[in-house]
Amino acid sequence: MRNMKVALALLAILPMSANLAFSMAITNQDGEVRKITVTENGERQDFEIGPNETTTLCEQGCFITFPDGTLTAYQGSETIVIRNGGPALSN
């Protein structure tokens, strides 16, 4: 009976832990290297993402400036792709 309780508790925790992945994933769907500027916690940093590469960054919210000039604020849990130098939500 006790083992059963433990097993059930573990099973119950599993789906909750599935939500623990944080930070944002960016995929570069263009054919060339794209450079983005990320301002996270007040610090500006440049990132280069190669073609068809995916990077994770930005855990708790950041500003991202894309090659085509788009500036957007993100919360940190989105999944984004870069298309034609600009952002698009992946679907």
Binding site: T39, N41, G42, E43, R44, F63, L71, T72, A73
Partner: peptide, 18 residues
């Protein structure tokens, strides 16, 4: 866009002050 740029600049300033 202007608002966003200003907000970003502010974020940098704030972090420096902190």
């Amino acid at each position: 866009l202007v608002t966003l740029k200003e907000a970003e600049a502010l974020a940098v300033t704030l972090s420096n002050m902190l």
